[in-house]
C-alpha cells in the first residue's frame, strides 16, 4: 500500500488480488446479496485509491482496509436503509456434492438458508462484530477501534448476537 501511496498505482492490482475474496465474503455475510457485495468491493478499492494519501502505514493494511469497508457499508445503510437484503445467490453456480444424498442436501440447504435469514435479522452492529471476528480474523480490540467503542462493547455485541441468532433459529426451525 505504501507503494500505491507513493504513486505506483498498478500495485493496487496486487492488493486487489490478495484481498478481494475476503472483502467480498465480508460484504456478502453482511448483506446476503452477491451483486451488492461486488459493488461494495469495488467502492472500497476506489476509496483506497482516492484516499491513499491518508494511509500512514501503521498497523496491518487489512485493518485500514476494513475501516474503509465498514464506512462504505454504513454509507449504504444510511443511504438505502437496507437491512433486509434479498439473497440473489441463485444467480451464482452451486455444484451439488454427489456424496450427499438428496435428503441430506435438502436439510443442509434449508439450514443454511435459515442461518442466512437469522443473520440478517440481528442488528447490523452485532452482525458486523460477529463477521469481523469470526471470518475476517480481527481481534476484538481492532474491531473496537474500527467501531469507535470499547473492547467490552464488542464482546457484548458478539455474545448477544450469538444469543439472538440462537433464538431466531429456534423460532425459524419451529415454523
Amino acid at each position: 500500500m505504501l507503494r500505491v501511496k507513493e504513486g505506483d498505482l498498478s500495485k493496487m492490482g496486487l492488493l486487489y488480488e490478495r484481498h478481494n475474496r475476503d472483502l467480498f465474503g465480508y460484504f456478502y455475510r453482511l448483506t446476503n446479496n452477491a451483486t451488492r457485495s461486488e459493488d461494495l468491493v469495488q467502492k472500497v478499492f476506489y476509496r483506497l485509491l482516492k484516499y491513499r494519501h491518508t494511509y500512514r502505514g501503521e498497523g496491518k493494511f487489512v485493518y485500514w482496509m476494513y475501516s474503509i469497508a465498514k464506512n462504505t457499508w454504513l454509507d449504504l445503510l444510511k443511504k438505502k436503509r437496507i437491512i433486509d437484503y434479498r439473497d440473489d445467490a441463485s444467480s451464482y453456480e452451486e455444484f451439488p456434492n454427489p456424496e450427499k444424498n438428496a435428503e441430506d442436501l435438502l436439510i443442509a440447504t434449508e439450514r443454511k438458508n435459515l442461518l442466512k435469514t437469522a443473520l440478517q435479522q440481528i442488528s447490523p452492529e452485532k452482525r458486523e462484530a460477529i463477521v469481523l471476528s469470526k471470518f475476517q480474523g480481527l481481534k476484538y480490540q481492532e474491531i473496537a477501534q474500527l467501531s469507535n467503542c470499547t473492547e467490552n462493547a464488542i464482546k457484548s455485541r458478539v455474545q448477544r448476537g450469538l444469543l439472538e441468532l440462537k433464538d431466531i433459529m429456534l423460532k425459524l426451525e419451529s415454523r
Binding site: 465474503g25 456478502y28 455475510r29 457485495s37 468491493v41 451464482y92 443442509a108 441468532l165
Partner: peptide
C-alpha cells in the same frame, strides 16, 4: 452457534467484479 455460522457459504465473486 459460533461454529454453525460457518455453514453459510459465500459464492465466488463474478468475473464482472
Amino acid at each position: 452457534m459460533w461454529e454453525s455460522i460457518e455453514e453459510i457459504d459465500v459464492p465466488e465473486p463474478g468475473q464482472a467484479m
